[in-house]
């Protein structure tokens, strides 16, 4: 299997009033063609900035973004344009990602026009074809975005991303703004498109259940860094990083037996200010297992099993080792409600 997208040591920096901020701080991963990498984390963890840097909406500070071997992180302007058709994006809020004054036909023909694809009738046919693919009636082509429901608008946004037949789509919280019944429609559509067209997704979401449903491989981000990355089986079977465990534990599940479980002790407090990340492990301040080593020295992302990497001293410290005694076992409340 070939690597479609290789991100290496990527950094994204923003200048803010309170000083410069490294929103993405040394992130590396690989995404294969036709697969889905889920990127999870809480707000402010840098997952959206990472997505925008890969889409070249914001410029990376350093590092490489290789799409089929070409470093698109360094290309600019006219050199980048021909590559743009290979990677597209679906945004969170379908109300904001469509120009309110643009009819659907224009919105969908725009990508073709920018890339000089086809003549008028060919473009028209392509619009009808893609609209049908995403489950929109081609008759609706002359309507304005506000005439559609939220779910339909997201279908239009997906159709726009599909127009140029990309091999990668970055989905930034594509269902977070939708009601549950519409979420299912969009998630099914994304799965169908992947099955039929072999598109790879970088699926950014804060919703673990959605990521579990869709992603082949999952990366967990905390304060600009990946703290754990693993294939779905490994991650859901044995989440290793204390943050991943806490995140999973915090998800409300449709299981009334969990009522009254006190899950707050596991993850007290808030994210530290990103302008001034703590020295050592960035999670140490909220981690119930933190040691002095954690507060002093930043852990590196290291493999604890083939394809399963964790940035945590408890797993990788010299005295612990991959199977060492220091590694946290699953907290009891995580063990308790395994398969329901």
């Amino acid at each position: 299997m070939s690597a479609l997208l290789e991100v290496e040591d990527l950094r994204v920096r923003y200048a803010t009033r309170r000083g410069s901020l490294m929103a993405v701080d040394g992130v590396s991963f690989t995404l294969h063609a036709g697969r889905t990498l889920g990127l999870v984390g809480e707000s402010g963890c840098g997952k959206s900035s990472l997505g925008k840097a890969i889409m070249r909406i914001v410029d990376p500070h350093s590092g490489a973004i290789r799409l089929d071997g070409v470093d698109i992180g360094r290309l600019s302007g006219g050199h980048l344009r021909p590559h743009r058709r290979r990677f597209q994006m679906v945004f969170q809020d379908p109300a904001a990602s469509l120009d309110p004054r643009q009819r659907i036909r224009r919105a969908l023909e725009e990508p073709l026009a920018v890339h000089g694809r086809g003549d008028r009738s060919e473009r028209r046919d392509r619009v009808r074809e893609v609209m049908a693919q995403v489950g929109l009636h081609p008759e609706m082509v002359d309507r304005l975005p506000h005439e559609f429901s939220g779910g339909q608008r997201q279908r239009i946004a997906i159709a726009r991303a599909l127009m140029l037949e990309p091999s990668l789509i970055v989905c930034d919280e594509p269902v977070s703004a939708l009601d549950v019944s519409l979420q299912a429609q969009i998630l099914n559509l994304l799965a169908d498109l992947q099955a039929s067209r072999g598109i790879a997704y970088l699926f950014i979401s804060h919703d673990l259940s959605v990521v579990q449903h869709l992603a082949d491989r999952i990366a967990v981000m905390y304060l600009g860094q990946i703290v754990e990355i693993a294939d779905r089986t490994a991650l859901w079977r044995s989440p290793a990083h204390p943050y991943t465990q806490a995140l999973i534990a915090a998800v409300p599940r449709m299981n009334p037996e969990r009522r009254g479980l006190n899950r707050t002790r596991l993850l007290p407090g808030d994210l530290p200010a990103p302008q001034d990340p703590p020295p050592g492990c960035r999670f140490a301040g909220r981690c119930p297992f933190a040691t002095r080593l954690c507060r002093e020295q930043a852990p590196r992302l290291a493999e604890i099993a083939p394809g399963h990497a964790v940035a945590c001293h408890l797993h990788t410290a010299p005295d612990g080792g991959p199977d060492g005694a220091a590694a946290p076992s699953l907290p009891p409340f995580l063990q308790k409600d395994t398969v329901q």
């Binding site: 549950v180 019944s181 998630l187 449903h213 089986t233 859901w236 079977r237 449709m254 398969v339």
Partner: peptide, 21 residues
């Protein structure tokens, strides 16, 4: 409504299934 929401499952992830729309 319950069938439309993917359910987080710990341990062996469930096989891929279509969500109930």
């Amino acid at each position: 409504l319950m069938g439309a929401k993917p359910r987080l499952t710990l341990g062996e992830p469930p096989p891929r299934q279509r969500l109930q729309e």
